[in-house]
Design a protein around this nucleic acid. Structure first.
Lengths: 252, 252
DNA sequence: TTTTCAATGTCGGAT
DNA sequence: ATCCGACGTTGAAAA
């Protein structure tokens, strides 16, 4: 790790182009301004911020508040550094999307470089796919006698998460949302139902919207269109050996 | 600014609870593991990362790559710090959503605190609203003779960006997207058109989807449903005195 | 507070 | 490469 307080622009240049800097994460604390042009255009006047340059070309400008960077460049940019007129400049260009960002530091309080050694990958549970899989394994969560025939059925009017048949062998489509579904989920169901009826000359089809919680407005729309809904909440759990990690988490 | 290399957990505790720490941004570089439970559940095994704690309660865990933090807590959490068994622990709980995150450091390479002085706000141009306004000012961008009567018309079947009439006085609705629109944009148009026809007993209505670029599949769906589309790209520009900043940007 | 929708969304997977 | 949909989306504005 390499860290230095109040480096001059020249000194900063030496550091960011020094040995091993290509694989290092670079952090700068200081007073800067930021210009961006690409899909949109922005300008951020002088102020103190934290700038992070990652080895994959991601560049983040963080202000004192908010989870989101105020300016950024996604991975894939190629940052270059310059010392100009007593300022330290970072330019990051994304060739793929023709997007440019320029960060100008007129004061650097702290410059840090560190190669991060990190082989771990995030283990994550509780996403929409987990809920879909739970229903596939136990279709009676939706209704007794339900059978799931297909997952991720894609058609020209979009994709539906589950396709199956109920006890009476009536076709059933199921749209699953892990969060609070909006009106668009109803549109999606409706579009698929319309498409199905036209294609299969089959008048009868049932449509379910499954989510942990469904807003009243959405429920009303569903009822109005003759669709059904089903509120299912799953406690997020890791599937297998990660259970040990889970146990650890709960205990502490 | 306060920065220290390889502080002990006890020393780190003194620093993060020291004077002025409440308003400071806290940055930690070191080896940590992260557990999260809330809307989902996750575990991230030991590895070297950058952790940022902001004054608004936002907590970010950044790995060596990607624009996104691997774990985080949104603004509003209240982080607490502990020194336990030779480790330094950050716990951040979001009361509102009942979400918990625990970060455990078994080695801290660098701990930095800094109060960021930053009064600037981002100036941004090129959003969807700018495209909508451009069409309002010059409706012929869509079609000759077009008149816009209403902006942001919201109904129970959703909202449509623009409402107007064409040369023949036929009602026209326009949905505007600044990015590449998905199928859901077509659903939205269709829902509105259906609603309009039912409510107004007026058979004729035209529907436009406007975007810089429209995927083929979406175009096909539009054609199939009798809707129209229009590809418009606007160069993002600041509206007024910010032009000076723009000029500066272009010149450098 | 809840709902709704945009975002320089980002990201991953499938075609 | 484009397209498509999920995301612990986040964030802001309106009801």
């Amino acid at each position: 790790m390499l860290t230095e307080s109040s480096p001059s622009p020249q000194r900063a240049l030496e550091l960011v182009y020094g040995p091993g800097s290509g694989r290092a994460m670079i952090m700068l604390l200081g007073e800067c301004s930021v210009s961006y042009q690409g899909r949109a255009k922005s300008y951020l006047d002088w102020g103190e911020r934290l700038v992070i340059v990652k080895k994959d070309g991601a560049v983040l400008v963080h202000q004192a508040a908010s989870r989101e960077p105020v300016n950024w460049q996604p991975p894939g940019s190629r940052p270059i550094y310059q010392a100009l007129d007593g300022t330290f400049v970072i330019r990051a260009e994304r060739t793929k999307a023709r997007e440019y960002m320029k960060i100008e530091f007129r004061r650097i309080d702290l410059l840090t470089l560190k190669v991060l050694s990190d082989k771990a990958e995030l283990q994550l549970a509780g996403m929409e796919e987990d809920l879909v899989n739970a229903i596939v394994e136990n279709p009676s969560l939706i209704e007794d006698g339900m059978r799931i025939a297909e997952k991720e059925r894609r058609t020209e009017s979009g994709s539906v998460d589950l396709f199956g048949r109920d006890r009476a062998n009536t076709p059933v489509i199921v749209e699953v949302k892990r969060g609070s579904p909006g009106i668009s989920a109803v549109y999606q169901l409706e579009a698929y139902v319309t498409d199905f009826r036209r294609k299969n000359c089959e008048a009868k089809i049932r449509a379910f919207l499954v989510a942990p919680r469904i807003p009243l407005m959405v429920k009303n729309m569903l009822r109005e269109k003759g669709f059904e809904h089903c509120e299912i909440t799953l406690r997020p759990e890791f599937s297998d050996d990660n259970q040990s990690k889970l146990a650890e988490w709960v205990s502490t």
